[in-house]
Amino acid sequence: MGSSHTHHLDGLEATRRLGARLAAVLAPGDAVLLTGDLGAGKTTLARAVIAQLCGIEEAPSPTYTLVQVYDTDAGDEVWHADLYRIEDPSELDELGLDDAFDSAICLVEWPDRLGDRLPPDRLEILLSGENTDLESGRKARITGYGRWEERVDDI
């Protein structure tokens, strides 16, 4: 069913700190699925992970390219995918996400577009709040599935 807990994020910096904590426990083969309304902070959280792992402070959003791939300082890959524009899961065939789930650190925005391709070992982060103003505070519900059930408390 999944093991979960909730973090209160009292502003933009809290979202970035969560990204830094998350980056500290990620390894190749880890899939992090980011869910929330437009403006909820999914890209902010992904950028914080990328900054920590790859040293890139202003990573572009992959809204139009669908996937951006970065190299970590350790030589691993980080895949940042934004699936908002995917209308049918068959469109995912060309992206290579299935293979990336096995070998890279994957940060996926709008994971509902994956359909039945959800990786069994995954960390789901639902960002929510009363509005989309990151400075006013949000909640991050973090749920681990598969091997993440044992690791979710490390964040």
Rank of each mutant, 00 (worst) to 15 (best):
E13C: 00
E13D: 14
E13Y: 07
E13Q: 13
A14C: 10
A14N: 07
R16G: 02
R16V: 00
R17W: 01
L18T: 08
G19L: 06
G19K: 06
G19P: 08
G19E: 08
G19A: 09
A20V: 12
A20W: 05
L22K: 05
L22Q: 07
L22N: 07
A23W: 00
A23Y: 03
A24Y: 10
V25R: 13
L26N: 01
L26T: 05
L26K: 04
L26R: 02
A27D: 15
A27F: 05
P28M: 10
P28T: 06
P28R: 07
G29H: 07
D30G: 06
D30R: 03
D30F: 05
A31Q: 04
A31C: 12
V32P: 01
V32A: 04
L33E: 06
L33D: 03
L33I: 08
L33Y: 05
L34D: 00
L34C: 03
L34H: 02
L34Y: 06
L34R: 02
G36F: 02
G36V: 00
G36T: 00
D37Y: 03
D37T: 12
D37S: 13
L38T: 09
L38M: 14
G39D: 08
G39I: 07
A40K: 01
A40P: 07
G41N: 02
G41P: 04
G41I: 00
K42V: 03
T44V: 10
T44D: 04
L45K: 05
L45P: 06
R47S: 07
R47W: 04
A48I: 08
A48R: 03
I50T: 07
I50V: 15
A51D: 08
A51E: 12
A51W: 02
A51N: 06
Q52V: 00
Q52N: 10
Q52T: 15
Q52S: 15
L53H: 00
C54V: 11
C54H: 09
C54I: 10
G55W: 07
G55S: 10
G55I: 09
G55N: 11
G55A: 11
I56C: 01
E57L: 10
E58K: 14
E58Q: 14
A59K: 01
A59V: 01
A59P: 00
P62L: 11
T63K: 11
T63C: 12
T63S: 15
T63I: 10
Y64K: 13
T65S: 14
T65V: 14
T65H: 09
L66E: 12
L66H: 12
V67Q: 09
V67L: 15
Q68S: 14
Q68G: 01
Q68H: 15
Q68C: 12
V69P: 02
Y70G: 09
Y70S: 11
D71C: 12
D71I: 04
T72F: 12
D73W: 13
D73R: 15
D73S: 13
A74K: 10
D76Y: 13
E77A: 13
E77S: 14
E77F: 13
E77T: 13
E77Q: 15
